[in-house]
């Protein structure tokens, strides 16, 4: 099975308080920020790696190709994916602020047409844009089925047929899907039994984890030798003009930090209604 996993670098979400707005208010500045793989993409990469390995022996039985769109130094994020276990990488050069969900989906469409994977597995959203659109756009452009917010993926025939559990506000929906397909994942895809591929023994449980697997030192050394292809939207024949433009950004107002103690529930309600004006 061959799986394409789009990964995006984002400003370290643990340091979100360091995000700054440019002087003219038209963009978020990235100065001084550390880049990390979008956590949702890291979880989707973990799911893809589980789908293409014998979990017990860790031997690879498929191929994972990671693709990222961004400036040249986004290759570090691709290397991280390769160190985790992906076989190949593709970097599509682009400028972060000129990428909207539509442009990203169009580029990914071209990559999919070129790579011909059995599945595309991606995070349900990025933690910077939070638009939650790319997976659905991509499936539409490809004419493939899409299963969003997957918490479980099972296949025993290399993704030709899949049983996917989707997370809904009202519960969970189980779908039978015919591949090739686009799947977006939620964090519950990391559950020890969430991913089954017909190769990993059914009773095998992955360790409880808050994130994707660590890049082992051996993986980091091996990643140096793995191929990373570089291309561009123009080379792929994609019109990279964004459809969405941002008018202005504003940081949330600073909190006053003051604490008021009240004597009774009635006083609390009164203050919430008249002073905080949240009721």
């Amino acid at each position: 099975m061959k799986i394409l996993v789009p990964i995006k670098r984002v400003a370290d979400p643990d340091n979100a308080n360091k995000v700054k707005i440019s002087g003219d208010g038209t963009e978020v500045t990235s100065e001084g920020l550390e880049w990390k793989m979008n956590p949702f993409d890291e979880w989707s990469l973990e799911a893809a790696l589980r789908l293409t390995e014998d979990g017990k022996t860790k031997s690879r039985v498929g191929e994972v190709v990671v693709v990222s769109i961004g400036p040249k130094d986004a290759v570090a994020t691709i290397r991280q994916g390769l160190a985790m276990g992906a076989e190949r990488g593709i970097l599509v050069e682009g400028e972060d602020k000129k990428l909207d969900a539509l442009v990203v989906a169009k580029i990914l469409q071209k990559i999919v047409e070129k790579e011909n994977p059995d599945l595309v597995v991606l995070g349900k959203q990025t933690v910077d844009g939070d638009s939650n659109l790319v997976g659905t756009y991509l499936a539409e452009f490809l004419g493939w089925p899409v299963a969003n917010y997957a918490t479980s993926i099972r296949t025993s025939d290399d993704g030709k047929t899949l049983t996917i559990v989707r997370e809904l506000d009202t519960g969970a929906a189980t779908l039978e899907v015919k591949g090739p397909a686009v799947i977006t994942t939620s964090d519950r895809i990391l559950h020890p039994h969430a991913v089954k591929n017909g190769v990993t023994p059914d009773d095998f449980a992955y360790p409880e984890s808050e994130g994707g697997r660590y890049a082992s030192l051996k993986g980091i050394m091996a990643a140096k030798k793995k191929p990373v292809e570089e291309t561009s939207a123009a080379a792929l024949g994609v019109d990279a003009a964004p459809q969405v433009s941002y008018v202005s950004f504003k940081l949330p107002p600073a909190r006053s930090g003051s604490t008021t103690f009240v004597e009774s529930a009635a006083e609390l309600v009164q203050k919430l209604r008249n002073e905080a004006k949240v009721l």
């Binding site: 991280q80 808050e210 660590y214 980091i220």
Partner: peptide, 17 residues
């Protein structure tokens, strides 16, 4: 080197978790 920084990041991530 880039590799040495990745080694650091791996250990940092393991220890942070």
């Amino acid at each position: 080197t880039e590799d040495q920084l990745m080694l650091r990041d791996t250990v940092r991530e393991i220890l942070a978790r």
